[in-house]
């Protein structure tokens, strides 16, 4: 009897465990999705009926629209800045013997593990002090928000790009130079294509992290300038109808689409 016709106890147990974990991860998602289609205003089980009206409500909610646009702008800007800082930093860390290199590496990864509240408080204080010292309107500005979000993008870039650089065979760069390519052309034509999966994945995860960031942003948004997660939080303070579920579902779908599209070009499971 081969294993395929009679699965062993071990593989059954493994599959069951994997299935349970997956269910556990997906459960909130499933509930949010379900809830978004409820007809009644106050969520209760079983649902009284189904409707699409909450999607219309979410799409027409001005704070949500403004929040979405701001989150999008901040996310894109922070991702680009994060790549601009993170890619050269990764190159330097992997390729050159830098004094205190491991320390810098840890520092660059730090925003990922630091609690958002702590990070938010720290940046808040820093921005106030900067404003006092320089007189520039830093506090609550979009620039200040982008700068802070760049901070949470950088760890993704450094982590994923250093990982792809470590496995990179440098003799192909030498081959390019031997064939007549200068350092810049070599980087553009040979190095960059080889680490592109890491960069794309870093951009995607950095963007998603920035887009969904709540705790840190809470400290940094200015009057009339809220990101989508904050707009959702504020809405929840006085209403708990399924509009929020619908807005979240739209977000989830957008992110999923972005991931699927990315995955077509870069196998994310291979990089992350």
């Amino acid at each position: 009897m081969s294993a395929s016709t009679r699965p062993s106890l071990g593989s059954v147990a493994l599959n069951a465990a994997a299935g349970l974990s997956l269910l556990y991860i997906l459960l909130p998602l499933i509930f949010v999705t379900w809830l978004a289609f409820f007809r009644q205003e106050i969520p209760s089980f079983p649902p009284e009926g189904y409707s699409l009206k909450w999607f219309a409500a979410a799409a027409n909610n001005q704070p949500f629209i403004n929040g979405f646009l701001l989150s999008l702008q901040v996310g894109v800007a922070a991702t680009l800045l994060g790549l601009l800082v993170g890619v050269p930093a990764s190159l330097a860390l992997v390729r050159h013997r830098i004094v205190l290199g491991p320390l810098f590496n840890t520092l660059l990864l730090m925003p990922l593990v630091m609690p958002g509240i702590v990070l938010g408080t720290a940046i808040y204080v820093f921005q106030i002090e900067t404003e006092i010292a320089t007189g520039l309107p830093v506090m609550g500005s979009q620039g200040g928000l982008i700068a802070a979000h760049t901070l949470v993008v950088i760890p993704w870039v450094v982590r994923l790009v250093t990982a792809s650089l470590v496995g990179f065979d440098r003799t192909i760069e030498e081959a390019a130079q031997n064939l007549g390519a200068g350092p810049f052309t070599t980087f553009r034509r040979v190095t960059l294509p080889s680490i592109r999966p890491g960069i794309v994945a870093a951009g995607l995860f950095g963007f998603v992290t920035s887009f969904g960031n709540l705790e840190m942003s809470l400290f940094l948004v200015g009057p009339g300038r809220t990101t989508l997660p904050i707009a959702i939080l504020q809405y929840l303070e006085w209403k708990i109808d399924p509009t929020v579920a619908a807005a979240s579902l739209i977000q989830i779908v957008l992110i999923a689409v972005a991931m699927i599209i990315t995955d077509r070009y870069v196998k994310l499971s291979r990089v992350v």
Partner: peptide, 15 residues
Amino acid sequence: WKRNCGLVFQSYALF
């Protein structure tokens, strides 16, 4: 890149 030497690497180093 200015020497015009064709080097064949032991590991081939194809792109």
